[in-house]
Amino acid sequence: MFWAMVITFLAVIFFIIPTVFACIIYRKIPVDKNKRRFLKGVTLYPAAMAGGSAYGYHYERKQQVKRYYDVKFPQGKALSGLTLAQISDVHLGKFFSLDNLRNLLKRVAEDEPDILVVTGDLFDDVEMNPAAAQVLDEAVDLFPKGIYFAIGNHEYYRNWGRTLSFLKKTRVHILVGRAEKVPGTDLWLAGAEYSFARDDESFEQEKAALTQKAVKDIPQEELKQTILLAHHPEFIDDGAALGIPLTLTGHTHGGQLGIFGLPVIPAFKYTRGLVKNGDSLGYVHCGNGSWLPIRVGCPPEIAYFRIRP
């Protein structure tokens, strides 16, 4: 799936988007076949390709937008007004530095959320991961109810055991296959592990089992006071099946390329934004970093969720 996404992404960057831009401009050129042929073959497509790529690399991928949502909980009276902020898919490394991470955390805190949740793929550089854990620890004081971390696939790729040893020395709440009740509230936060199952049947079975593992310590009657954190967006279905009112996910980067708020290539069942599933909601975060450093029509985001009864 990863290489299919890479190929799709490159095809969009170097063919589809330049073609769309070129067609828009091309329609305005006077009817002269020789000039048209020259512009199309020599000037227009390369210019559109360079311009779109430059915009996506130098500008949009660095513009962290903020989005705000009110979320109704069936038993949310006691939780009313509690606000969570979500970041995801930072992908620490060449295109996202430790200073970028510090600035992101400060920007998240500007709106004074009670809790920060991180839904995976933050720790993506073996050399930088220990310092990143310390940066998270320093930011805990910015969020009155703390910072909660759920794992993504890239943490496994970058020596998760080593990163975990550093995280355990911080005040960050590590939700990997477990749940915690947020101190001073009736809210539970549960973090599911990532499923690496390859075929559809195994994937469905494994993510259901991982969801059950994450919530095993939550009393059945309190699942409606729970938010599930999971990296892969299809855990939204498993959260809904348990009656959990909100599942927060990431992984897709929102497709990284979009037109009119929609992904150019919807490679996932759920790609970005709010998902309604029965009486439950899910959210697919667009990510704060990039595995390829270009974003067009899909800026990185900070999402805020305020609980309402």
Rank of each mutant, 00 (worst) to 15 (best):
residue 11 A to W: 09
residue 11 A to R: 06
residue 12 V to I: 15
residue 13 I to M: 13
residue 16 I to A: 10
residue 21 F to Y: 14
residue 21 F to H: 11
residue 23 C to Y: 09
residue 23 C to I: 13
residue 24 I to N: 02
residue 24 I to R: 01
residue 26 Y to T: 01
residue 26 Y to F: 14
residue 26 Y to L: 10
residue 28 K to A: 04
residue 28 K to L: 09
residue 28 K to C: 04
residue 28 K to N: 03
residue 29 I to Y: 05
residue 29 I to K: 06
residue 32 D to Q: 11
residue 34 N to P: 00
residue 35 K to I: 13
residue 38 F to T: 11
residue 39 L to V: 10
residue 39 L to W: 10
residue 40 K to A: 11
residue 41 G to I: 04
residue 41 G to F: 12
residue 41 G to H: 13
residue 41 G to L: 13
residue 42 V to I: 14
residue 42 V to W: 11
residue 43 T to N: 01
residue 44 L to T: 05
residue 48 A to L: 04
residue 49 M to R: 06
residue 49 M to T: 07
residue 50 A to T: 07
residue 56 G to C: 04
residue 58 H to S: 13
residue 60 E to M: 03
residue 62 K to C: 11
residue 62 K to M: 07
residue 65 V to P: 06
residue 65 V to W: 03
residue 65 V to R: 05
residue 65 V to K: 13
residue 66 K to Q: 15
residue 68 Y to S: 13
residue 71 V to A: 09
residue 72 K to F: 14
residue 74 P to Y: 12
residue 76 G to N: 01
residue 77 K to C: 00
residue 79 L to Q: 04
residue 79 L to N: 08
residue 80 S to N: 15
residue 82 L to T: 07
residue 84 L to Y: 13
residue 86 Q to E: 13
residue 87 I to P: 15
residue 87 I to K: 14
residue 88 S to R: 06
residue 88 S to G: 12
residue 88 S to F: 07
residue 89 D to L: 12
residue 89 D to P: 15
residue 90 V to R: 03
residue 93 G to C: 10
residue 96 F to C: 03
residue 96 F to R: 15
residue 98 L to T: 10
residue 99 D to A: 14
residue 100 N to C: 08
residue 100 N to L: 04
residue 101 L to T: 00
residue 101 L to S: 00
residue 103 N to K: 12
residue 103 N to M: 08
residue 103 N to G: 05
residue 105 L to R: 07
residue 106 K to D: 06
residue 109 A to Y: 03
residue 109 A to I: 01
residue 110 E to Q: 06
residue 111 D to W: 01
residue 111 D to F: 02
residue 112 E to K: 14
residue 113 P to S: 05
residue 116 L to M: 05
residue 117 V to M: 09
residue 118 V to E: 04
residue 120 G to A: 11
